[in-house]
């Protein structure tokens, strides 16, 4: 079973790297979905089948579909690809690469410091998650609901085509009939 973890981890890393370095937006999106799916495999292996299902349904499903729609709508096409090619020069990688590498090094140092901890394989049933969610974390659930509502309203508002809207005092005089 362990071998599955390593394979999934490798695929996730490779796919994410391809996604970040990719030129074509749709290709990158597909790589991202691959990455998410392999992470969901890892979730399954770690005994969280409910989360694995959510990852597939919501992340790889719903959210990515949103991306696809937006990319479709904007329809930058091959001109966008060309532009990306010009923008993505090797020299731009230096600074972010160094910063990320340092951050990674420090995380690695933190991880290697304590003794190794084996992970349990106990499967945690969705019922247990649900029970915890609606007892201990009920307040946060409500807050998450607020957040989602805000997201919906915000997305609706921002997604509208820009209307020429005047303050009522700035409204042009109605033409005389």
């Amino acid at each position: 079973m362990n071998i599955l973890f390593y394979i999934a981890a490798l695929i996730a890393i490779m796919a994410t790297i391809r996604m970040v370095t990719g030129i074509n937006a749709v290709h990158s999106l597909l790589y991202l979905i691959v990455s998410l799916l392999s992470v969901s495999v890892i979730f399954f292996l770690l005994g969280a089948p409910f989360i694995a299902a959510l990852e597939v349904i919501i992340y790889a499903g719903a959210i990515m579909v949103l991306f696809v729609f937006v990319i479709m709508m904007l329809n930058t096409g091959s001109s966008g690809v060309k532009k990306e090619h010009e923008l993505l020069k090797p020299s731009t990688w230096i600074g972010p690469g160094i910063t990320s590498a340092i951050l990674f090094g420090e995380m690695l140092y933190v991880l290697m410091h304590p003794a190794a901890h084996p992970m349990t394989r106990t499967e945690i049933q969705p019922a247990a998650v649900g029970a915890l969610l609606f007892s201990k974390y009920i307040l946060i659930v409500e807050l998450a609901a607020f957040l989602l509502a805000a997201g919906v309203i915000g997305a609706y508002h921002l997604g509208q085509k820009e209307k020429v809207s005047h303050h009522r005092y700035l409204k042009n005089e109605e033409p005389a009939t």
Partner: peptide, 16 residues
């Protein structure tokens, strides 16, 4: 975003 990243690095370094 870069500034955020560098800030994270510095904070972590100080903590470590």
């Amino acid at each position: 975003a870069m500034a955020l990243g560098i800030g994270a690095v510095i904070t972590l370094t100080i903590l470590l």
